[in-house]
């Protein structure tokens, strides 16, 4: 069971939240120039790292607001929680 600190509500249990997958995927601005493979890379391809993953979470059964988390995918240790738009903290691994 993860204990997650919502930036607005404080510490809550994992089942109040939903994970929205990899964060910091930016929609290409020059989308009219992309070919199918480049679109596929944006829409479907993911880093899926064994190590530190930067991901989006939403506090579904609470304030329903989104935030970002840096979490280790082997130890499940939560390294940082930061608001959307804040710079991504850098971690090794």
């Amino acid at each position: 069971m993860l204990l997650i600190t919502c930036p607005w509500c404080g510490v809550r249990e994992e089942h109040e939240f939903a994970c929205g997958g990899e964060a910091h995927i930016v929609r290409p601005l020059d989308s009219h120039t992309l070919d199918d493979a480049e679109w596929a890379d944006y829409v479907f391809m993911r880093r899926n790292p064994k190590g530190v993953q930067y991901e989006r979470w939403v506090h579904n059964d609470g304030c329903r607001r989104w935030f970002n988390m840096a979490r280790h995918t082997v130890s499940h240790e939560i390294l940082a929680i930061y608001k959307v738009g804040e710079p991504k903290p850098e971690f090794e691994g």
Binding site: L2, E14, H15, C19, N48, K50, Q53, R71, T73, V74
Partner: peptide
């Protein structure tokens, strides 16, 4: 579990 993991263990909920 709905989040990425390589831990070979899942969550209790």
């Amino acid at each position: 579990d709905l989040y990425n993991s390589y831990a070979q263990r899942g969550s209790f909920p």
